[in-house]
C-alpha cells in the first residue's frame, strides 16, 4: 500500500520533473554560453536540471516515507467550467465586445457553483455584467468596446 499512500508526493515529483525536463530540453536549443559568459539558454537549463533533481528527490522521499495523504475530491465540473469561462473571455472579448463576452463568461462561472440552476445563474451573469460595465467602463473609463465587430457593433 506504500505506493498508494505516497501517490501525492510521487505526483508532485512527477510534475516538477516534467516541468524541469521541458524547460531544460527547450533551453538547450538556445545559445548556452559558459558560466562566465551566459547565453540565453544557460540560466533556464541549469534551473531545469535543478528542478528535475528536486522533483526526483520529492518523489523518492515520498515513496520511502510512504506518507502521501489523500488527494481529496477534485471538483472537475467546476474546474472545467471556470477554465472555460476564463478562456472564453480572452478569446472573444475583442470580437464580441465586452458585454456579450463577459455575460457568457460569468454565466459559465456561475454554473460552476454547486447546485446552481440556470435561471439564477443567468440573473447573476446579467447583474454582474451590468455592474462591471458601470465600474470599468463608466467609472474607470477603460477603453473597451461594449459590442464588438462580430455582432456588427
Amino acid at each position: 500500500m506504500k505506493l498508494q499512500d505516497a501517490r501525492k508526493d510521487l505526483l508532485a515529483g512527477a510534475v516538477f520533473t516534467g516541468f524541469g525536463l521541458a524547460f531544460a530540453v527547450t533551453a538547450s536549443t538556445y545559445d548556452i554560453g559558459t558560466a562566465l559568459r551566459m547565453g540565453p539558454g544557460f540560466f533556464p537549463l541549469v534551473l531545469g536540471a535543478i528542478l528535475v533533481l528536486l522533483g526526483i528527490s520529492i518523489a523518492v522521499k515520498g515513496f520511502v516515507a510512504g506518507e502521501g495523504g489523500d488527494l481529496g475530491t477534485v471538483p472537475w465540473r467546476s474546474l472545467v467550467l471556470l477554465i472555460a469561462a476564463i478562456l472564453f473571455f480572452g478569446a472573444t472579448v475583442r470580437d464580441l465586445g465586452l458585454v456579450p463576452a463577459l455575460f457568457v463568461s460569468v454565466l459559465l462561472a456561475a454554473l460552476a457553483g454547486r447546485g446552481v440552476r440556470v435561471v439564477p445563474a443567468v440573473v447573476i451573469a446579467a447583474s454582474l455584467t451590468a455592474l462591471s460595465v458601470l465600474i470599468f467602463v463608466v467609472a474607470l473609463q477603460l477603453r473597451l468596446s461594449l459590442v464588438g465587430p462580430w455582432l456588427g457593433g
Binding site: 471556470l82 469561462a85 476564463i86 473571455f89 480572452g90 472579448v93 465586452l98 463577459l102 463568461s105 460569468v106 462561472a109 456561475a110 460552476a112 457553483g113 446552481v116 439564477p120 447573476i124 451573469a125 454582474l128 455584467t129 455592474l131 462591471s132 465600474i135 470599468f136 477603460l142 473597451l144
Partner: peptide, 18 residues
C-alpha cells in the same frame, strides 16, 4: 458565495485584459 466567485472571475478577467 455563488455571487462572489463569478464576480471575482469577471472582474479579474476584465482587469487583467485591460
Amino acid at each position: 458565495y455563488r455571487w462572489l466567485f463569478p464576480a471575482i472571475i469577471g472582474f479579474a478577467a476584465i482587469g487583467t485584459f485591460s
